[in-house]
Amino acid sequence: MGLSRRDFLKVAAGGSLVAASSFSPAPLLARESKARLPEAVGILYDATVCIGCKACMAACKEYNHLPPDHSTPGSVWDNPLDLSAKTYNIVKLYKNGTGQTKDQAINGYSFIRRFCMHCVDPACVSACPVSALTKDSTTGVVKYDKGACIGCRYCQIACPYNVPKFQWDQAFPQIKKCQLCDHRIAQGGYSACCEFCPNGASIFGNVQDLRKEARRRLALKPGEVAHYPLHRVDSQDVRHRIVTPYLNHIFGEREGGGTQVLMLANVPFQDLGLPPLPDESAASQSETLMHSLYKGMIAPYVLLGGLFYLVYKNTTKQDLP
């Protein structure tokens, strides 16, 4: 059997409209990764300063009214294994070999704090079908609105850091994630984790200032004494300590289009569970594809017109056996 050449060409013309943009290397409707907001706030986490005291975890639970999370039988301690609907923030331990030296990849250990990175171009916001996840236009905080959410969990698929968490044990569940204590920011405060961090491992502030501070730390010489601000990047409350070596990389400066949470460490970030991401955001890739196909619904309407014409012609002029 075979199709007539004419038929084939007609259909191919319509079909290629759909397929064309996914083939073309540089689609016309490419959507760039979004730019940083000037007023955006974030957190700088420095793993070389972190002592693993978990004060940030305790403060986070208290100020977000989260219940304890039990990963061991007995339900005595709050000992989460990972982020969950009950834990927005967690300190994890990287350990290698004998695990003797802090902030060393071989035979060493390092702490790493995991929480929402507040991406500049968040995949979850792009993915959410009902705008339950939104990015604040001033602070850049990625917020969740349970009133809009339908619980489809596409945000969980989309997030490269596996941050949004779902209440699996609830009949009326919600998505739960760090919102940078925006309820405290609204009252003139700032993130509880930074306010309660005793050592200045996590500091809160304007992302531009945080980037400057991160670059300053990378420029420090190991062994010399340097000051580290506590709680806030612009704080007068500083602490002096001997600088330990840094990996020359600010995680979150470019990863996945950039994040408002920046991280410093001396162990490769991939070993600390932070994925290697391309500079362009997953949201921009997905939306480029979507917009190329569906911008203004032009392609679908054209295709519909073509299909209608063919069906109409074929049904009216049909030559039934």
């Binding site: 993915a127 009902v130 619980g151 489809c152």
Partner: peptide, 23 residues
């Protein structure tokens, strides 16, 4: 879907996020 009672939001333009593939 977890919050099925909000499912109709998919059909309300002020909720819908047209960037979402899922929409």
């Amino acid at each position: 879907i977890g919050r099925y009672w909000n499912g109709y939001h998919l059909f309300l333009p002020w909720y819908v996020n047209f960037n979402s593939v899922l929409v």
